[in-house]
Amino acid sequence: MAELRILTLIKRVPAPGARINITDDEQFVNTQNLGFTMSPHEECAVEGAVQLIEEHGGESTVLTLGPAEAEEQLRYAASIGINQAVLMDNGGEDWDPQRTAKAIGDAIEQLESESGPFDLILFGNESADSGGFQVGIRVAHRLGRPMVNGIKGIEVHDDKVVAKREVDAGSEVYELPRPAVLGVKEGLNLPRYPTMKGRLASKKVEINAVAPAADAGGQAKVRLLRPVETVSETVILGTDESAAAAVVDLFEELGVL
């Protein structure tokens, strides 16, 4: 099989712990005390791309649309084995899904006209923060390529990509002709940690800049708000094994015994 070219799309997102706070203007997540990461589905997409290149040979590229600081996530991807990085700096503005997809589609067309087509493009199933469930699908449609979301298994063959999607009782199998686009989910693999050698090498990876430009779509943020949490008064059934009887009484009361 000829060497592969794989593109993976990632998004820089905050890494929240037990609670998400909102800025006073209700427009953004308050990230004052938070670190940043890429969406978990995308970590698996990056790992998947690295594994496929290790298996088949070729070259992998990672692309992000976001603030200049997203260089951190691009270098992280490079530290675990991605070869090329592209940053589309939109100044950290919150772009709607149609606008995001248009800008990314334009960038992919530009990259492919310069260096040849990607055999496989990987998106995360949805971003961890805004969770629009559509950017990858819009980009694939624009490029005229087959796209399936929710993928937890990928095999690349000469003429096709076999993809597995987890469903309640097992999995569905899809066979997409190449070139293909997939939206992957966490569980595709267990992403590796960067090695010291990988970290050092990632510092030398050149970050290519592509200027994003696209008009706003039809969905616009008004404000963020926190969901109403029902506060429950926790009933403490005990602190040791003697609580077992009270626990099983609860099972009986709920009808689950």
């Binding site: 997540v29 039809g218 708000l225 926190r226």
Partner: peptide, 9 residues
């Protein structure tokens, strides 16, 4: 974990 109010045109 968070809600977003959006306008749709």
């Amino acid at each position: 974990s968070l809600l977003e109010r959006v306008s749709l045109n």
